[in-house]
């Protein structure tokens, strides 16, 4: 029982880490294509082994512990970020009954894990005892916190329509129609909030190279940096998976008719995640960075009232037409 569970978890972890590795390669390749470059093409066939080489390089680099840093917290911060990005995957259903822990408060669990994610960043910024790191951490924390509010309201809208907090039953509730059809504005809002939540372009102010060098992880080198990097990208994958589950019907095929049902369910899920990954990368390549006041006013003055209003609208419609799920 125990050994089997550990093996299952390790298999998910390995898949996530490989996914992260090739996310970075895809990022460099696609951005290279957009900017009319080739991207990495030396290590392996067309650069396919590049992420492994990068990982190995970071692994054998020297870990620098800054002299005026708070050592314990400084080491703890990247571990926390990395660990939190992995444990979220436990509740993600990869296919029908293909899930590690089918808990009935899956969404709340994911929300709690992402709320804890702020700590890795604050810890890193504070314990580094460096100005750039501190400013980056502050910005990042305020930004993540602001967008978590609207993410919460969007999640409630989905829960209202599916009548469950369990991610598998949310997917099964979309068998007739994916939630991205009736809730198209929420789908877009959720994806943009996911960009802000993962400190991704165009909301990458915490890492703005031009002003803060690299934000909260300036002082990190070698594996500390790599753990942050892996954690961030795993979080992006997790948010893509969550968007796919909430709005694009998770593992469900596009249409429930012959040519689409040949492809296995989990492959459909992977394809949806891959689509979001490409969207993440294209966003990075195409959009300029937001100003901080614009970012904040977008979160508080547009997303929050709009998602709350949409929630009330959904509840009222479901209530008045008696469409509520039991």
């Amino acid at each position: 029982m125990l050994v089997l569970t550990i093996l299952k978890i390790l298999s998910v972890v390995v898949i996530v880490l490989i996914g992260v590795a090739y996310f970075t390669l895809a990022e460099r390749k696609i951005m290279g294509t957009i900017q009319r470059r080739k991207g990495p093409n030396v290590v392996g066939f067309q650069g396919l082994l590049q992420p492994l080489a990068d990982g190995l390089k970071l692994f054998v680099k020297e870990s620098i512990l800054p002299s005026n840093a708070n050592k314990t917290l400084f080491i703890l911060a990247p571990m926390l970020t990395f660990g939190l990005s992995l444990i979220g995957w436990v509740v993600i259903p990869f296919g029908e009954s293909l899930v590690l822990a089918d808990i009935n408060v899956g969404i709340l669990y994911l929300l709690a894990v992402s709320a804890l994610g702020v700590y890795g960043i604050i810890l890193a910024g504070w314990s580094s005892n460096s100005k750039y790191a501190f400013l980056g951490a502050l910005r990042s924390a305020a930004q993540m916190v602001s967008y978590e509010v609207s993410i919460g309201f969007i999640l409630i809208t989905v829960v209202l329509c599916s009548g469950s907090f369990n991610l598998s039953s949310i997917v099964l509730a979309q068998e007739k129609v994916w939630f991205c059809v009736p809730h198209l504005p929420m789908f877009v809002l959720f994806f943009i909030s996911a960009l802000a939540e993962t400190n991704r372009h165009p909301f990458d102010l915490p890492e703005a190279e031009a002003e803060l060098v690299s934000g909260y992880n300036v002082e990190y080198s070698a594996m500390g940096f790599a753990l942050f990097f892996l954690g961030e990208y795993a979080n992006m994958l997790l948010m893509s998976a969550l968007t796919a589950i909430l709005f694009l019907g998770g593992w469900l095929p596009l249409l429930d008719i012959f040519p689409f049902t040949i492809i296995p369910n989990s492959v459909w899920f992977g394809l949806k995640i891959g689509g979001f990954v490409v969207l993440f990368i294209v966003m990075r390549a195409c959009l300029p960075r937001f100003r901080y006041d614009q970012l904040m006013s977008l979160g508080w003055k547009v997303f929050l009232p709009f998602s709350l209003g949409w929630l009330i609208l959904t509840a009222s419609v479901l209530m008045s037409f008696n469409w509520l799920p039991n």
């Binding site: 808990i103 408060v105 604050i122 916190v145």
Partner: peptide, 25 residues
């Protein structure tokens, strides 16, 4: 009491302690 225990993580750890950290910093 899974729900309340997750709320503890979500509200106390994820929000209130973050506020305390901000104030202390």
């Amino acid at each position: 009491i899974e729900f309340v225990s997750l709320l503890f993580v979500l509200v106390y750890v994820g929000a209130i302690a973050v506020l305390f950290l901000f104030v202390v910093m």
